[in-house]
Design a protein around this nucleic acid. Structure first.
Lengths: 147, 147
DNA sequence: AATATAATAGAAACAGCGTATCAATTACTT
DNA sequence: AAGTAATTGATACGCTGTTTCTATTATATT
């Protein structure tokens, strides 16, 4: 289950951050999507909820949420600055629909073996990885696109 | 073994493209690195070989090389537009040093299982993936940084 | 070697994304 | 209700990448 905008609002306040209408709109914008969103798409959605939101606030809110690990970035083939809500769990990866952007998380990551093998073969001390899997979701596979 | 600048020059010509001094300088700039380079870093290196190279030409050459699969993009945590020479082989991934950028390719990709499992679990028709592994190379692990 | 020509170059202007600065506003504490 | 520190938007800026256009040039042909 993914974090709702309201729960995140509570988390923000518990960390001493203010809950402004702008932040709330950004939260709702991100939480209302089942896929990843670019900062620009987030701005657009947030503006439909509250018209007086600036681009700057979107970036600031994204930075803040990123620091608190409440949103995570999605690396798409055409750009690596899209965001979506982080699930409560820790390490995970994304299965991204290249048609509509719908994104599914998965947590079973089989890369620790690979990392240790690479480590012993190269002498590198491995520290992490990016993994994004791409595909076409059932809906998009039936031709029409949606979001 | 990685492609040399001269071999790539031959490939370009065999595809009907001209071998201009600018392109050659860009090729040498990329080939002379053992890591991934941003377009800006490539411009800088190419300029040290030949002063009259414009930023536009770097981008154009990168596009061309990308179409021919002679360079590939490296997704780093801070940006996804770095380039390095492609090895002659096909599907592969990168182990990237976060200290100096040195990059090692590896071809044993264990993700087809994961993809088919995800596919049957989600209904997505998987089409590919990005995988970049990060680490610290032996040199950088001994404190000083180099390139 | 000279010529023709299509490809390629750089200059300049532009567009988009993200950030820094700063005065005005406002969410929250008391 | 008032005080205050956090937060906001406006503005300006810088960086990255692209488009357009004219001049140049690598190559094929003679």
């Amino acid at each position: 289950m993914r974090l709702t905008a309201n729960r995140i609002a509570g988390i923000l306040r518990s960390h001493g951050y203010r809950l402004t209408p702008q932040r709330h709109a950004v939260l709702k914008a991100i939480a209302s999507s089942n896929g990843h969103l670019t900062p620009d798409a987030i701005l657009e959605r947030a503006r439909s909820l509250r018209s007086d939101i600036s681009r700057v606030s979107v970036y600031r809110t994204l930075d803040l949420l990123g620091q608190l690990n409440l949103v995570c970035r999605v690396h798409a083939p055409d750009g690596c600055r899209s965001y979506m809500m982080t699930r409560p769990t820790g390490h995970h990866h994304h299965l991204v629909c290249t048609g509509c952007g719908r994104t599914v998380d998965f947590a079973d990551c089989t890369l620790t073996e690979l990392e240790s093998r690479l480590s012993s073969e190269t002498g590198f001390r491995t520290t992490g990885h990016i993994l994004e899997v791409y595909g076409v979701c059932p809906t998009c596979d039936g031709s029409a696109e949606s979001d």
